[in-house]
């Protein structure tokens, strides 16, 4: 690609650039900004004393009405009438106030994350990493079978086409059918554990990057190495592994990010019970409409932590722009 001339750059038309600016601002930057801001305030119910006051007045009204029923004196009844009216008015005013809440700014919502970071953040990140690692290990030989061509590749692809057409949510359900207490595999895969279901849901994602990396491998290099007397482990370590390093890294990062961010799979697996899968906890808070501030703070924490882990994986596998752009040939 040649260096673009200023003339060409001017030629796009400003409309296109405005469109892109609106997109990135309205759909990416502003929502994330709103999330960050929302994570910094919480609603405190105005005062507990309000509801206590309401209870006190309600009790007093019961007593006054009781007195009114019993009394026969006109003047006393008029006096009671007046007091009941005043107290009722006061009660209505307090009732209106009770629904209101005071906005309190601060890092209160992050308290849960900082109090037990190993539990709230560490556990889901660790489990997602484990699921990603196992999915990649499972998927690598499959990528060999599909990438190295021949009749076998076509058979494997045809056999895998059907279950792979399922979305993660539906795959998780199918997995639960197998691992259900009344299901076929209850003894082997205990129900309620998210990691096996996650591996089952995400294995298809892991295959593609490794498959693409393997299609770039020139089979003649392996043949040449074998002719020169190299053993299979040596060929795998010296020729195949360096070639698919980038593919393995991409597969790991993709499965990890999908696993750590999944709401659907943990929800289907534990049937709405509590899990320590943070993305599911966030979705549950949104569904109930309470603790939205905490959900926002957890969202910020989960996002930053998972991107940090993904960046560490990219460094570990020495992923560069080359691995993302280089195509099979």
């Amino acid at each position: 690609m040649s260096a673009p001339s200023p003339l060409r750059r001017a030629g796009i038309g400003p409309m296109v650039r405005i469109l892109v600016a609106v997109w990135l601002l309205a759909l990416v930057v502003a929502p994330l900004g709103a999330l960050g801001i929302r994570s910094l305030w919480s609603e405190e119910p105005t005062v507990v004393s309000t509801s206590r006051e309401i209870d006190r007045i309600a009790e007093r009204l019961i007593v006054l009405r009781h007195d009114w029923d019993r009394s026969t004196d006109r003047d006393l009844r008029a006096d009671l009438d007046r007091r009941i009216r005043l107290l009722t008015l006061r009660l209505h005013r307090l009732d209106d106030q009770e629904g209101e809440a005071e906005v309190v700014w601060g890092g209160e919502n992050y308290a849960g994350l900082f109090d037990a970071p190993a539990h709230t953040l560490g556990a889901p990140l660790g489990r997602a990493l484990l699921a990603a690692l196992l999915a990649v290990i499972l998927a690598t030989p499959i990528a060999f079978a599909t990438a190295l061509g021949g009749r076998r590749a076509r058979i494997v692809a045809a056999l895998l086409a059907l279950p792979f057409a399922l979305d993660a949510l539906l795959r998780a359900h199918a997995w639960m059918r197998l691992a259900d207490p009344h299901g076929a595999l209850a003894a082997v895969a205990p129900p309620g554990s998210v990691v096996p279901a996650m591996i089952y849901a995400l294995a298809p994602v892991a295959i593609l990057p490794i498959h693409l990396a393997l299609t770039r491998l020139d089979p003649r290099r392996i043949e040449a190495a074998r002719d020169l007397g190299a053993s299979t482990p040596r060929i795998l370590a010296r020729i195949v592994l360096p070639e698919i390093r980038g593919g393995l890294g991409l597969a790991g990062i993709a499965t990890f990010l999908l696993a750590v961010g999944s709401t659907a799979v943990p929800w289907v697996v534990d049937r709405g019970a509590e899990t320590s899968w943070l993305a599911a906890t966030i979705a549950r808070r949104i569904a109930t409409g309470t603790d939205i501030g905490i959900a926002a703070a957890e969202g910020v924490g989960l996002t930053l932590a998972s991107l940090l882990v993904a960046a560490a994986l990219a460094l570990l596998f020495r992923l560069g722009p080359r691995d993302l752009t280089r195509r099979g040939g």
Partner: peptide, 30 residues
């Protein structure tokens, strides 16, 4: 090209692929 990685490796690979295909299809079949 099927034996590109050697006979023994190929056997392991075939076994692995068969088990994976079974593992993939079983839950959907159930």
């Amino acid at each position: 090209m099927a034996t590109i990685l050697g006979r023994r490796t190929d056997f392991i690979l075939n076994l692995w692929v068969s088990l994976f295909v079974l593992w993939s299809i079983l839950p959907v079949a159930v």
